[in-house]
């Protein structure tokens, strides 16, 4: 109440007047949940986890520092190495495929087709489903006894073998298929929005110059869509690092440890194995991975003085 009263007297908002604590008091009180979330959870929680990753915490967090011990142990653990390798394979392929498939679908959708809304609905509906549902459906489709493999064999190709979920060498590709099914619709939508943002005159000019369509796409449109690509890349990449539910539902990390991912390592060590230190160290590594992706992007997009489209 006092905030409003004081405020009414300070006529121009955002003026350079000396700041008083009571100014905008209502707004400040209303923002308390946001401040708490930002400072206590996001900032405090992150720093807390990083700090405790240098301790020997086991069942309970304890401030007994052991330097980089947890990290040394982490990088010596076969399960972590498998997780990282899986994340790298999964990450690279899902980036490439979802970008390519998403862009191609968007380009096709942009050809003044009929039933555009129907197609969009079809391509995007998996995105509304949870990773658990996605994982379980694909677990069933890839079931070796009843799924795609058995159907193709029954059709006469007896030697056909497509059994990713029970073959530790290729299990991560089985997860990749499910992830692409779930996520490419979103990429398509973002790309389509980007394509719709391209000035029509560009197409006219390319036509007048007699440049074939694929060349226009490759050398004119795609470079023009750089911001869209970068944003999409960041979105997919930060989703990749988090991948967890899908693996839990589809394979539970198996066979053996063949489809483990870092997020699952963190969860298992924090809440199952009661080895908190390992969990903290692993989650800090995840944080670093994300930082490697985000910081250059943030710098390019916001720091370099360039305007985003």
């Amino acid at each position: 109440m006092t905030g409003q009263a004081t405020d009414r007297t300070t006529v121009p908002r955002r003026s350079g007047r000396p700041n008083r604590l009571t100014r905008n008091l209502s707004a400040k009180i209303a923002s308390i949940p946001m401040m708490l979330t930002a400072v206590v959870i996001f900032l405090g929680g992150t720093l807390w986890t990083v700090l405790y990753s240098f301790t020997s915490s086991k069942l309970l967090p304890r401030l007994r520092f052991v330097g980089l011990d947890q990290y040394e142990r982490l990088w010596a653990a076969p399960r972590w190495l498998v997780s990282i390798e899986n994340l790298a394979i999964y990450g690279i392929f899902s980036l490439i495929f979802s970008m390519v498939i998403g862009f191609v679908l968007a380009a096709l959708m942009d050809q003044k087709i009929r039933f555009e809304n129907t197609f969009r609905t079809v391509f995007l509906y998996p995105f509304a489903l949870s990773f658990i549902v996605t994982g379980l459906v694909w677990q069933w489709l890839l079931n070796p006894e009843h799924g795609i493999q058995s159907v193709v064999r029954a059709m006469g190709w007896a030697g056909f073998s497509f059994d990713p979920l029970y073959d530790s060498g290729i299990v991560i590709y089985g997860i990749l298929i499910a992830a692409l099914w779930q996520g490419t619709g979103l990429v398509m939508c973002l790309m389509l929005a980007g394509l719709r943002g391209i000035d029509e005159d560009i197409w006219k000019a390319a036509r007048v110059d007699g440049i074939p369509m694929w060349k226009t796409y490759l050398f004119v449109v795609i470079p023009m869509m750089r911001p869209v690509f970068v944003t999409t890349l960041v979105i997919i990449a930060s989703g990749i690092v988090r991948v967890y539910d899908l693996v839990v539902a589809q394979t539970s990390g198996g066979p053996g440890i063949a489809s483990e991912v870092p997020a699952k390592y963190v969860y298992d060590y924090m809440f199952q194995a009661q080895n908190l230190g390992q969990g903290f160290a692993a989650s800090t590594m995840m944080l670093i991975t994300v930082a490697i992706i985000i910081v250059p992007w943030a710098y390019l997009e916001f720091g370099g003085g360039r305007k985003r489209v």
Partner: peptide
């Protein structure tokens, strides 16, 4: 910025 931080980092706090 926090939106990009993996949830796993903030779970235990």
């Amino acid at each position: 910025v926090g939106a990009f931080i993996p949830y796993q980092v903030m779970l235990y706090p």
